[in-house]
Amino acid sequence: MAKTNYDEPKSAKGPLFYGYKVFQYVFLIFLAVMSLLPFVIMIINATRSRSQIESHAISLIPGTNLATNWKVFTGKSFNVTTGFINSFIVSTGATICSVYFSTMTAFAIVAYDWKFKKAFFAFIMAVLMIPPQVTSIGMYQFMYSIGMTNKLFALIVPAVAAPSTVFFMRQYMSGALPMEILQSARIDGAGEFRIFNQIALPMMKPAMATQAIFAFVSSWNNLFLPLILLTDKKKFTMPIMVSQLNGDIYKTEYGAVYLGLTLTVLPLFVIYFLLSKYIIAGVALGGVKE
């Protein structure tokens, strides 16, 4: 009721109001074009021939050269299927490891009282922001000395300890996990491990799904660690393959380069446009505490 009173000034819409509105939408549409245009050019140029791109590199009309570009692209040493499979193995493995074990670690913090719990959680918060890059030299030397370079395994196992995922799961769990249910399961004689797997895990599904998306995407996009740990072409992940598109092998074959780039982002486009609602909600949740 009272609300209509505040809204009254809104009905007094002068030319100033409409001018402001127009400016707002023009600006927003400009930003949207800025975000989309590079990808639109990329996809359209993937279908155009080399001479078309050389005469006019910007065009909104697709060409008919997709098949030729594909031939040029796959004709060189660039093995896109291998990259896909490797990236898929690494990202899936790392996602499962990080989400499952992070939930388990968060469960240990939320569901039980133990002496060093607070210290442990403080430690997790302290190492939250340390990027793996700054310790990469030691990582490389260590992996090399135990013969783990060129093994995809080396990119998966470290994901078991993912402080930021633990942090997020703990924040979510402390609000969403009713201790009474765990207690009644205990009375029914369920073991603690079973309680975690069959009661706590299913209740954490929404948070786990959000974290799974982020873990998958960040693992898929990771360049630095694969670049130093993998030297064997057969083990290359997608981002390393992408980095080769700048090299001499495709010199002026821009159609093929654009096609290669398009292929590497296609799975991300699909994931994003299917799950964008959850992804954006997840970003919003991760940023602010509570």
């Binding site: 009282d113 990469s136 030299i137 030691g138 470290p158 078991v160 300890a161």
Partner: peptide
Amino acid sequence: NAKYGYLFIIPFVLVYLIFHFYPTIYTTV
């Protein structure tokens, strides 16, 4: 149930010590 708290953080702690903490020390050295 306190011991389960310790039990459930074992995977995290082990992997952290081997693949994150040790490389940090190694880099320092």
